[in-house]
């Protein structure tokens, strides 16, 4: 038997992520995995399954629903949970204040806080989760580039970027006081292209919106917004019928499609290599200020 002691970088990243996921399960009383339905969530869930195979996924999946997600995302979510027998918790901010926020406000900090951050914190408190695993990657944003893999939150869920615990070797300090929690990022060292290559290699299902198709859109504030129940063309807007796809997925009224012919994973990977802008460029929510992500993260956003 000839033995090869070689791991490709994707296999190394996979091993590291599985290690982190298992460590979370071993060290915390009540972990949860944050599920956002996007490509990173698909990869994260795949790794969670691998980490515990042949055992089932040992913790619930939590989805914070703003009510304005694409219909394709919601049906993908429900299908995934059913197929894998996962314990899916869907949580929504039902307060009047949140209910008042309509699709046209989906890009504002106010909306993010009430529709995403606040219900997330409420759900974590309500169910008593002490560790929340998320699919954020360090290459997404320069504030994320500085966050630890095991990122401590005090009892007010505040991230203190200047006093982060040093993270040494793969030896993670998981000690927390009652009422505090940990955010855990197993995909920290993955980049956008790694995610796609892994999806291809492992044959992972993703929401069909990632693939190019003829879709009816309007061009608004520099984004191609798809016409659906939340986005209707204004009188002065022309409805375009173009081949397009999504590079990231968020709330339908604030997430733009990109013109694309990439109908397969191979074509998506090929297209990725020609991009000269980052994926967050298609998200109106990040554009509000240059340090938008750090501020949101300090508040408790993922």
């Amino acid at each position: 038997m000839s033995i090869k002691y070689y791991l490709s970088y994707l296999q190394q990243l996979e091993a590291e992520s599985i290690h982190i996921i298992r460590e979370t399960m071993a060290e915390f009383a009540k972990p949860v995995v944050l599920y956002s339905i996007g490509k990173d969530s698909s990869v994260l869930m795949h790794l969670v399954q691998k980490a515990f195979y042949p055992a089932k996924i040992p913790f619930p999946m939590l989805h914070i629903d703003t009510g304005y997600k694409f219909q394709e995302m919601i049906s993908f979510r429900d299908h995934y949970a059913k197929k894998n027998g996962a314990d899916l918790i869907v949580y929504k901010n039902e307060s009047d204040e949140a209910q008042h926020l309509g699709p046209d406000e989906a890009h504002t900090d106010h909306y993010i806080y009430h529709k995403k951050t606040k219900p997330l914190l409420e759900a974590l408190a309500k169910f008593g989760f002490d560790a929340a695993i998320g699919g954020a990657r360090r290459d997404e944003d320069k504030a994320r580039a500085k966050e630890r893999i095991f990122s401590h939150r005090n009892k007010f869920n505040v991230w203190d970027p200047k006093n982060q615990r040093p993270e040494l070797w793969h030896n993670y300090n998981c000690q927390i006081h009652k009422g505090e929690s940990m955010r855990v990022f197993p995909l920290s060292n993955w980049t956008e292209i790694d995610i796609w290559r892994y999806i291809k290699e492992e044959n992972i299902d993703v929401v069909p919106l990632y693939f190019a198709k003829k879709r009816k859109v309007v061009s608004r504030k520099g984004l191609y917004l798809m016409i659906n129940e939340f986005v209707q063309p204004h009188d002065d807007e022309e409805v375009l019928d173009i081949m397009c796809r999504y590079r990231t997925l968020g709330c339908s009224p604030s997430t733009g499609a990109i013109p694309s012919e990439a109908t397969t994973l191979d074509l998506i990977i090929e297209e990725m290599c020609s991009f000269d802008t980052s994926e967050r460029q298609t998200r109106a929510i990040d554009a509000t200020s240059s340090n938008a992500m750090e501020k949101k993260k300090r508040d408790g956003y993922f």
């Binding site: 360090r138 290459d139 320069k142 580039a145 500085k146 970027p161 200047k162 982060q164 920290s188 060292n189 980049t191 292209i193």
Partner: peptide
């Protein structure tokens, strides 16, 4: 201030 991680291909 802090360790930042960067990715190169």
């Amino acid at each position: 201030i802090d360790v930042a991680y960067r990715y190169m291909a």
